Simulated assay, not measured.
Amino acid sequence: MVLAVRGAVQVDRDDPADILAATRELITEIVRRNGIDAADLISIVFTLTPDLTSCFPATAARDLGLVDVPLLCATEVAVPGALPRVIRLLAHVESDRPRAAVRHVYLRGATRLRPDLAA
């Protein structure tokens, strides 16, 4: 069965080092909390708020060794008043786990996006 795992992290500024470190942290935490093996990853879609333009978060996934996983980066919709400087992730995973067992991950300031899921 294919499951979707969501996550997000907020960074302090539009800096490649910050974006890549936060993205690595997010991916690592999603994998850890969900017991995901890299071979089970089907694809990952990343979005960034329009104020983040200095690098592609997919680079962080490649840095972690996800070289054969299809990755896509896009800009998030520019909604007035939305939380700034956020990297979002949607991972498609092959798993036998029930959907209710999925642990979505929201880190740093992004916990405000889904306080019901932030833990």
Rank of each mutant, 00 (worst) to 15 (best):
M1D: 06
V2P: 13
V2N: 12
L3P: 01
A4V: 13
R6P: 01
R6W: 07
G7A: 10
A8R: 10
A8Q: 10
V9K: 06
Q10E: 10
V11N: 09
V11F: 05
R13V: 05
D15T: 01
A17H: 14
A17G: 04
I19S: 11
I19M: 14
T23L: 00
R24M: 06
E25D: 14
L26E: 07
L26I: 05
T28H: 02
V31R: 12
R33P: 03
G35C: 03
I36F: 07
A38L: 08
L41N: 06
I42Y: 03
S43A: 14
V45E: 15
F46D: 02
F46G: 05
T47Q: 04
L48F: 01
L48A: 05
T49D: 09
P50T: 04
L52W: 06
T53M: 07
T53G: 12
S54T: 11
S54A: 15
C55Y: 07
F56V: 00
P57W: 00
A60M: 04
A61Y: 07
R62I: 14
R62C: 00
R62F: 00
R62T: 11
L64P: 08
G65A: 09
L66Q: 13
L66Y: 14
V67D: 14
D68E: 13
P70Y: 06
L71C: 03
L72V: 09
L72W: 07
A74W: 01
A74D: 15
T75F: 13
T75W: 06
T75L: 12
V77S: 13
V77K: 11
V79C: 00
V79W: 07
G81S: 08
G81T: 06
A82T: 09
L83I: 10
P84N: 13
V86K: 11
V86P: 10
V86W: 11
I87M: 01
L90C: 05
S95I: 04
D96T: 14
D96M: 09
R97I: 01
R97P: 00
R97V: 03
A101V: 01
A101C: 07
V102R: 03
R103K: 15
V105H: 12
V105S: 09
V105C: 08
Y106A: 05
R108N: 15
G109M: 00
A110V: 04
L113M: 14
R114T: 02
R114C: 12
D116H: 03
D116W: 05
D116Q: 12
D116G: 13
A118W: 09
A118Q: 03
A119V: 11
